[in-house]
């Protein structure tokens, strides 16, 4: 057990290192260089060689690649997060502390709603396998899986404006400042994300419950005359829901991909909006740092979920 935990944590570091190299590398293979693109974006008719060199030096582009990489990683670790945004001059550390909270809340609400909805639905679908509740739930999950998030968002906005004559509040407010405005703003992307997430989790729950229902110990429990509710609660669900937790962690990266676009459509000032704005402005320090941060959190959460899984389910073979 200890060896497994140690191995898993040790693997986390090279994986993160590899990720940082990929992101760093991608930002350096740009056709043309960053400085030239920044200058061409500014409304200056004529740029001297001197200004160009000055900008390159101030961006650290004249340093050897290893030094640039080292500087960046060091600033990621000491909380500077790669300096400041090229577009807005805002320190990235401030941007992170402001935006991370919003995305974390968005993800949290989505996860809560998903868990409340998907587990009962999955169980229901399994119990009534191939009967009408299963079919209704299946339609709900298939549509949730295949309607593109961002179009669903557009349709929701359109519906609210045309039919309800109502739009969400213009500005995002923190929960403690103005709870009503906060929820009226953030609930829409949450519902859309939760639909896709629920679709996925319901399918997983259903297939796990189905598998456990076929086990011998369930037949034994039934044959000794236990009430069906006791069989389900004590024997089936306990065993069926464990794998569901791991998959929940795995899906988190889909969740964040989705929030990337939805934050933009519903103008929620989270990490996703920051990355997209950075991508549009070619704001390299911002994309680089926010992306690595996102990957860091995802890898971290997956690690924790993985370890939890092994703790909850003692049947897992640690030698593997």
């Amino acid at each position: 057990m200890k060896a497994y935990v140690a191995k898993r944590i040790l693997l986390f570091v090279p994986t993160l290192f590899f990720a940082s190299l990929l992101i760093f590398g991608a930002m350096r293979v740009l056709p043309g260089d960053v400085a030239a693109r920044i200058l061409s974006d500014e409304d200056q008719a004529y740029v001297t060689q001197e200004q160009y060199e000055q900008l390159r030096t101030s961006l650290g582009l004249n340093d050897p690649l290893a030094v640039q990489y080292g500087t960046w990683i060091w600033s990621m670790m000491n909380g500077q997060f790669g300096g400041e945004s090229l577009a807005t001059r805002e320190p990235i550390s401030e941007m992170v502390s402001r935006r991370l909270r919003v995305t974390a809340l968005l993800a949290l609400y989505t996860i809560i709603i998903t868990m409340i909805v998907s587990i009962p639905l999955g169980i229901l679908a399994a119990i009534y396998q191939d009967r009408w509740p299963d079919y209704v739930i299946r339609i709900f999950t298939i549509t949730g899986n295949s309607i593109p998030n961002f179009w669903l968002a557009l349709m929701l906005l359109l519906f609210m404006v045309l039919v309800l004559q109502w739009s969400p509040p213009l500005r995002y407010r923190p929960v403690w400042d103005d709870p009503t405005a906060h929820f009226l703003k953030i609930i829409w992307p949450v519902l859309i994300l939760a639909w896709g997430y629920t679709a996925f989790m319901t399918r997983i729950t259903r297939s796990n419950v189905l598998e456990v229902l076929r086990q011998d110990y369930v037949r034994t429990a039934r044959s000794k005359g236990l009430h069906e509710i006791v069989v389900l609660g004590r024997h089936v669900l306990r065993n069926a829901l464990i794998p569901v937790i791991t998959v929940a962690g795995f899906y988190l990266s889909f969740l964040l991909s989705g929030s990337l676009i939805l934050e933009n459509i519903f103008s929620i000032p989270g990490i996703g909006q920051g990355i997209i704005a950075g991508a549009r402005e070619r704001d390299y320090p911002v994309i680089q740092s926010l992306t690595l941060l996102l990957v860091f959190f995802l890898l971290g959460i997956n690690l924790i979920v993985d370890l939890l899984y092994k703790i909850i389910d003692p049947r897992i073979d640690f030698a593997k």
Binding site: T15, A19, S253, L256, V295, L298
Partner: peptide
């Protein structure tokens, strides 16, 4: 690669 959100 599995650690990266696909769209990112």
């Amino acid at each position: 690669m599995m650690g990266f959100p696909g769209l990112v």
